[in-house]
């Protein structure tokens, strides 16, 4: 059947693309680190005093002087086996660090993603439906201001206002200091999640709202809305019956395509709020020369963004009924 063939083709194409993406990402990031001034041995030694002989021994042990291509193949071979090595700063397997950190970040990103999507869509629909009125203008100004403000700056401002001056939220971290994991309450955790999630979502709100607004205006000036009006449908009826129906799918697709920006944003936000997520780990790994962790994070973030795009493609190719038909008519 045509449909099954199409799905098979789609999966094949995407798998191939994923494989080539991973190979390229691994190679490029490995080579960048190879030729950067990062010294993993120095990072491993840390503050310990060592003799030059000792250091040479360590270099021998870590294989610092093996040729880059051999190094790459060794590393890549381990990766394929699922061994991402050991993190130098956390002194535990990279995969465990990533698992723990990514989970924390996914919660943060997920909440802000949903919040941004919902709020952005609602604002966009309201602005589009009331095009040209003061409501529309206010939403537009709000969006432009948000889109123009850098995330890290917003994060600092929020931290100052809500945590320092008003004292509504803790300054940072995901759980209180000095409390064992068993004693951390759900409330503690949520309280520390709100501000970072809010900051992270703000940029996204602006993007989705402006897009939804444009799209709705386009729909409202379409022939079918004109016809709906000619048949006696009025104001909000039209927006609810035709607007949302035709705007939702492209807006959701855009939201999935925004995974890369979401990840980029989370690096900054986690840094400002000391939220122990993958972004903060990435910064730490970079600053403190934790090569295995850095490479591991690069691979997983590439996967994360890839799946966002993949979902957008799936929506585009399989969910939108109009696309189905175009294929069939060819």
């Amino acid at each position: 059947m045509v449909k099954n063939e199409k799905i098979a083709g789609f999966i094949g194409k995407k798998t191939l693309r994923l494989a080539s993406l991973l190979v390229l990402v691994c190679f490029a990031s490995f080579m960048l680190i190879q030729y950067s001034p990062i010294d993993p041995v120095r990072a491993y030694i840390g503050e310990m005093p060592v003799t030059p002989e000792h250091k040479a021994q360590l270099e021998e042990y870590w294989g610092v002087n093996t040729p880059p291509q051999e190094k790459f193949l060794n590393w890549a071979g381990d990766i394929i086996k699922g061994d991402f090595g050991t993190s130098l700063i956390y002194r535990m397997p990279v995969i465990n660090v990533i698992k723990e950190r990514f989970t924390a970040s996914l919660v943060l990103m997920g909440i802000s993603w949903l919040f941004a999507g919902f709020l952005g869509f609602v604002l966009g629909i309201v602005a589009g439906a009331k095009q040209g009125t003061w409501v529309d203008k206010a939403i537009k100004i709000y969006c432009y201001a948000l889109a123009a403000a850098p995330t890290f700056w917003l994060a600092l401002v929020f931290l100052m206002i809500f945590s320092v001056y008003l004292g509504w939220f803790p300054i940072g971290l995901s759980v209180p200091i000095g409390v064992t994991a068993d004693n951390v309450t759900f409330f503690d955790w949520v309280q520390r999640l709100i501000l970072p999630a809010l900051t992270l979502s703000l940029l996204d709100v602006a993007k989705i709202a402006m897009f939804t607004r444009e799209k709705l205006i386009e729909v409202l000036s379409s022939d079918y809305v004109l016809f709906a009006k000619a048949r006696g449908e009025k104001g909000m009826d039209v927006v609810l019956r035709h607007g949302i129906r035709n705007v939702a799918l492209p807006a959701i697709t855009l939201q999935f395509l925004g995974f890369s920006e979401l990840f980029g944003g989370t690096v900054l936000v986690e840094q400002v709020f000391s939220y122990p997520g993958i972004g903060q780990a990435a910064v730490a790994a970079g600053l403190r020369s934790d090569v295995p962790l850095l490479l591991g994070i690069v691979i997983f973030s590439a996967l994360f963004v890839f799946f966002g795009n993949l979902i957008a493609d799936i929506i585009y190719e399989f969910v939108d009924p109009r696309i189905k038909q175009q294929e069939a008519s060819i």
């Binding site: 079918y224 004109l226 000619a230 006696g232 449908e233 019956r241 035709h242 129906r245 009924p321 109009r322």
Partner: peptide, 19 residues
């Protein structure tokens, strides 16, 4: 409009593509 005066438009673009 819609109950005493009706319009018959010219093309399929006058129908909501997703309804």
């Amino acid at each position: 409009r819609g109950n005493e005066i009706a319009l018959i438009p010219q093309a399929t673009t006058y129908l909501d593509p997703l309804m």
